[in-house]
Every structure is written in C-alpha cells, then in structure tokens.
Design a protein around this nucleic acid. Structure first.
Lengths: 197, 197
DNA sequence: GCTGATTCGGATCAGCGATCCACATAAGTG
DNA sequence: CACTTATGTGGATCGCTGATCCGAATCAGC
C-alpha cells in the first residue's frame, strides 16, 4: 500500500472511531470523510461498506473478547466465567451504539465483513456455555446461538435510550435464567441467586 | 373531512398495511404513496410521520392487546395469564417487522404518535405482573418497565432474520426467569436439550 | 526529471423524508 | 344551475444518505 494511502486509512480509522463513539455506528460516512479531510470516495475505497469499516475498527476488541473467553475457560467457576464473559460482551457493545443490529445481520451473512468475527465470538461463548453445562450450572436446553441471541437482545436494550437504564438489571434477570443453580430442567427452587433492586 | 380526502386516507391505510406486512415498518413512504396512486405529500399530510401512520394502522391491535390483558386479569392463574399475554404481545409484533424499535423510542417520547398506545400497553402488562407478584409466582424485583423492555427485546429478536428461529425458545427461557417457579406451566413440552445447532 | 501505476475527490446518481405552493376540486351559497 | 371559497392535491425541490465514475493529482521507481 502506498504511503499516502496508508496515512489516509489510519487517519480515517481514528476519525471513524471518534465519530462512532459520539454518534453510534450509523453515523454518516460522509461526515467521517469530511472530518478526516478526504472525499467520501476515498473512505469507501478503503472500506467498501460500513461493515468493513467497523471490522477494521473493532477487530481488536473482538480479539480481546475472544482471548478473555479462552482465559476464562480455565476458571474455577464455570458459571461465574460464563456470566462474567457475557457481561463483558454486553458492556463492550455499549461503546459502539447500534453495533448489535449489524452483528445480528452479520452472523448469518457470510459476505459481511463482520461475519467471521461474529462467528468466532459465538464459538467462544459456546465453549464457556458448554463448560458450565458440563458442570451442571447452566441449563442444557440452550446453545451458543441462543446465547448469542440473548446477549444481542440485551445489548440492543442498552442501545435504546428508553430501555437502557434497565439493561444492567435485566442482564441479571436473563443470567438467572441461563444458570440453573445446580438443578436441571424444570424449575429451580427458592433462594435463587437474584438480587432485588 | 372532505369525502375525497377520507377516501384517500382509507386507501392509504390499506396500502400501507399491505406494504408493511410485506416489507416491514421501514418501507418507503414514497412507495406506499405511489402504490396508492397519490403523491407523497398527500400521504404525509394525512400522516405527518411514520409513527402517525403506524398509530392509525395499529391502534386496533393495541386495543385488542389491552382488552386481552383486562380479560386475563380475572384469570385463575395469574402467572399463566401473564405469560400468555406476553406471548400474545411478542407474537403480535411479528406481524409488523421492525415495530419494536419505534415502540421503544415512543415509550419515552411524548411527542410520538405511538406514545400513548405504548404507555397503555405497558400499564396493562404491569397490572398482570403485579397480580402474579401478589400471587407469589413472579419475581418481585421487576416492574412494568422491565417487562416492557424484556418483551421488546424478545420481539426484536424475532425481527432479526438470523435470530428469529430461536425467538420462541428464548421467550420460554426469559419467561422462566420472570416466574419464580412454584408453578412453571407449559414451557416443558416442546422438546428436550438442543445443545448443538 | 520522467514515466506509469496508484490514489484521490468532485461530480453525479438513485433513493429517502420534508416542505412549498400553484392548481384542482368538493362543498356551500345565491 | 353558476359562482365562491375552503380544502385537498401532487409535482417540484431541498437536504440528506451511500454508491459510483473518471479526470486530475500524487507517489514511487528508474
């Protein structure tokens, strides 16, 4: 890649990161280009789609989440590891308002630039889930795709201004549904791990 | 209202209903107007915003859901009533792909044409929830707003093509989290573990 | 300094909703 | 019926979105 192109690319990524933090992932590409002092066509040549731009911007974060999952796979408490990782995932999405919709679309669109990252993330979550299920502390009627969907739904909640204040609390609610409290299938007994408030 | 205006309005509603069923609530207003054989300006005068158009289209459905909730308030089993109504709500949203995002935005936007309907719906759900909580069959650390958010999140899942296949199953998962478990009803029958998928 | 491949970005296109206003028409009146 | 007026209409236009084209500018190697 030519030196000037590389410079433009890096600068665009920096500007895009700031713009997305401020306005969410649906920020106008034209605005990003304008702020970066280049033409829209230049941005679109470096990143042909919004997904491609996001992939370049987020792949570090994706790697970190995947690494975190791998690390947690050796944790003492499989269910704590699972919940902790899920919490990290939902917390991460709050930095990129609106990214959830794109990820949900990308997970099944092999053409999307975000596809591979999403699939990897789902697999990482699936491993943590399987381990918790093996330990008898997570319900066995869900799989990695269900987990991905639940996290996506919770992340989406955090994206909605009116619902975001409840997102953390509802994370706990959903988490309590994923964990079995060591009993399996039908109903968990009283005294479950739920806080009030 | 003048007779010709009334005719246009009714025709627009019919066309809009069909278009939304086909393409979701984000269908182009220009397309609706074109299909109805009127100008875009005419559609926008009758329904100044997309929300206004939806409100006119959906207010019957909203009324039905609210009435259903009122009816269920006298049911024998408060928790079955609650879950049944929540299921009706999520099922209903599948007919109007994408409506959830607008409802989430409308619930706190007093200017939105959908605001009143959403608030009424939330209140109806809150009453069913309170009754189940009074009966000791629903967890007491959630309120009507939490319930609205959970249903919205599940409805959003159903809107995402990649996640929709799991929506029904995840409804059961979330429902099990809302109920405290002294009588978990019908969520058992539809197949056992589905660990790999 | 010259040459050729690469990169750039203004211009343009199709689409969106929002708005304006000259025009058409329904409804009311003599 | 004819005439007036209030109402409704929709083509045209605006500002915005991302997508694309292609002449011009720029970089890299000789």
């Amino acid at each position: 890649m030519r030196a000037d192109a590389r410079k433009n690319r890096d600068h665009l990524l920096a500007v895009a990161g700031a713009a997305i933090t401020e306005q969410g992932v649906e920020v106008s590409l034209r605005d990003i280009a304008r702020t970066a002092g280049v033409g829209l066509a230049t941005l679109l040549r470096h990143f042909p789609t919004r997904e491609a731009l996001l992939e370049a911007l987020l792949h570090t974060s994706f790697d970190e989440l995947t690494a975190k999952a791998a690390e947690l796979e050796t944790s003492d408490s499989p269910e704590d590891a699972l919940v902790s990782w899920l919490r990290d995932c939902t917390a991460w999405t709050t930095e990129y308002r609106g990214v959830t919709v794109l990820m949900a679309a990308a997970i099944e669109d092999t053409e999307s630039a975000l596809h591979a990252s999403c699939v990897t993330l789902r697999a990482a979550g699936a491993r943590l889930l399987t381990r918790a299920q093996g330990a008898g502390t997570a319900r066995t009627d869900i799989d990695g795709t269900d987990l991905f969907a639940l996290v996506a739904a919770l992340a989406w909640l955090g994206d909605q201004p009116s619902l975001a204040p409840r997102a953390d609390h509802l994370f706990d609610v959903v988490a309590s549904a994923i964990l079995t409290g060591s009993a399996s299938s039908d109903t968990e007994g009283e005294g479950g791990p739920r806080a009030s408030g």
